[in-house]
Computed example of a mutant assay.
Amino acid sequence: MELEVRHLRVICAIAETGSLTRAAAALRLTQPGLSTQLRRIEGLLGGPLFERRTSGVVPTAFGQVVLTRARAVLPTIDELMDAAALAARAEPGPRHFRLGSVNAPLLGGLLTALRELHPAARLTSRGQGSPVPLVDDVAHGRLEAAVVGDSPGYELPARPEVVLHPVVTEPVFVALPAAHPLAARGEVDLADLAEEAWASPHPDDDRTREYWCATFLAAGHRMHTVHEVDGRLLLELVRSGHAVSLCQPTFEELPGIAVRPIAGSPLHYRHLLAWHRDGPLADAGAALAAHAAAAYRTATARSRVYRRWLAEHRA
């Protein structure tokens, strides 16, 4: 994890409100989610930023140093972002559409659809681990649209400027080492995964890890995450037999990795398309969402395990 501008805004909001609860409301986050994020920021910076008191929170001496610099930096960054957005809108020539996406199989279809609608437009995109900053970027005009997602009970906070259009809700599967005994089964019980060593992405403000752990606890089990990794490193740990991990059902099996459904489908994830309510893609939003759904169906067709699961459950 690296320090980001949004982390500086979190620190300043907590200092200005003097309360995690009020800061969470101002940032459109939950209080537990903000507390988790603050702990991660403090771990990244190397010390506690706030002292908890009965009346609220106050900056530590270390926190005052960080706040002084954050308050000096943020206005300059805001001016830069506003100037860049204004320049992009005023720039002559082809239109420019900026897209964002979490790790989901929808961005390709979205780009294809935009290319058909605006053949001369310039298209750029960037990935992000958490959907929360992507929604914020759409709200402030830094992105025209974004592929985002959330989990049941941990839905993304509503933003009046942003349309969050559901595309599909899917079950969450498990990725196992191919030699793992559970890989021989057609599906895996949650109870059989309780004592496994888990590899999971770093906790983020979308609260996905919190949802996973809460689901395990509700079933009377614990999810023991011993490796906080993502991307290729996560896959290597699974492939080498050191961990199991949760994954999207459209994840295509790789050599050494087996993907299996979880019995009863206790975990779900919802894919959404976000666009600004008054932005340049507002009129095309529903059509773009349909193309995103088509891209999802294409990804589904590539997954042998998911195709079989869908056939059984639709029957």
Results as ranks from 00 to 15, higher is better:
residue 2 E to Q: 14
residue 2 E to I: 08
residue 7 H to T: 03
residue 8 L to I: 03
residue 11 I to R: 06
residue 15 A to T: 05
residue 28 R to L: 11
residue 31 Q to F: 12
residue 36 T to H: 02
residue 40 R to A: 15
residue 41 I to K: 05
residue 42 E to K: 04
residue 42 E to N: 03
residue 45 L to M: 03
residue 46 G to D: 00
residue 50 F to D: 02
residue 52 R to H: 08
residue 54 T to S: 12
residue 56 G to Q: 01
residue 57 V to S: 09
residue 61 A to R: 15
residue 66 V to A: 07
residue 75 P to L: 10
residue 76 T to V: 14
residue 77 I to C: 06
residue 83 A to G: 11
residue 83 A to C: 07
residue 84 A to I: 13
residue 89 R to A: 09
residue 93 G to A: 04
residue 93 G to H: 00
residue 97 F to W: 08
residue 98 R to H: 13
residue 99 L to Y: 13
residue 99 L to D: 06
residue 104 A to Q: 11
residue 107 L to R: 01
residue 109 G to A: 10
residue 110 L to P: 11
residue 116 E to W: 01
residue 119 P to Y: 08
residue 121 A to M: 06
residue 123 L to F: 12
residue 135 V to M: 13
residue 136 D to H: 13
residue 142 R to T: 09
residue 145 A to K: 04
residue 147 V to T: 04
residue 151 S to N: 14
residue 164 L to R: 00
residue 166 P to M: 06
residue 168 V to Y: 12
residue 172 V to W: 11
residue 173 F to Q: 04
residue 173 F to V: 00
residue 179 A to Y: 06
residue 180 H to P: 09
residue 181 P to G: 12
residue 184 A to S: 14
residue 197 A to H: 10
residue 205 D to Y: 14
residue 214 A to W: 09
residue 218 A to Q: 04
residue 219 A to W: 02
residue 220 G to S: 12
residue 228 E to F: 14
residue 231 G to H: 10
residue 232 R to K: 12
residue 234 L to P: 05
residue 234 L to Q: 13
residue 240 S to C: 04
residue 243 A to D: 04
residue 244 V to K: 01
residue 245 S to H: 03
residue 252 E to M: 13
residue 253 E to C: 00
residue 254 L to F: 14
residue 255 P to E: 09
residue 258 A to Q: 02
residue 262 I to P: 04
residue 265 S to I: 02
residue 267 L to S: 06
residue 268 H to N: 05
residue 279 G to P: 14
residue 279 G to N: 11
residue 279 G to E: 12
residue 280 P to W: 09
residue 281 L to T: 08
residue 283 D to M: 07
residue 284 A to I: 00
residue 285 G to F: 08
residue 288 L to T: 08
residue 290 A to V: 09
residue 292 A to R: 07
residue 293 A to P: 07
residue 293 A to I: 04
residue 298 T to E: 15
residue 301 A to N: 10
residue 308 R to W: 08
residue 310 L to R: 14
